[in-house]
């Protein structure tokens, strides 16, 4: 059995309908005075959290919407927002 992801429009669907868009890392740093190293780190150096993280997903086979959700990378399962679980 595969995992599910909850699309804000279509609801809970099979993981295979989605494309992973990587972890949510906020906006890119300001381009002005940005060094190659700082730019490279912004693009390449992900947190790769072992645990709960906020991620971008794209509903490729459905409504075509990009959205964020929370997922536990240790179990692969989608989880509620940390604020909601505490």
């Amino acid at each position: 059995m595969s995992y599910t992801i909850t699309c804000p429009i279509c609801g809970k669907r099979d993981l295979y309908e989605f494309r992973f868009g990587n972890e949510e890392r906020g906006p890119y740093p300001n381009q002005k005075g940005l060094t190659p190293r700082a730019y490279s780190e912004a693009v390449q150096m992900h947190e790769a959290v072992g645990g709960i993280q906020k991620e971008w997903w794209y509903h490729r086979d459905g409504c075509g919407v990009w959205f964020t959700t929370w997922r536990d990378t240790l179990t692969g399962r989608e989880v509620l927002q940390p604020e909601e679980t505490s």
Binding site: D61, G62, C63
Partner: peptide
């Protein structure tokens, strides 16, 4: 409207 795969086709 339901948007999703039918026979694996969006």
């Amino acid at each position: 409207l339901i948007q999703g795969p039918v026979l694996h086709i969006p």
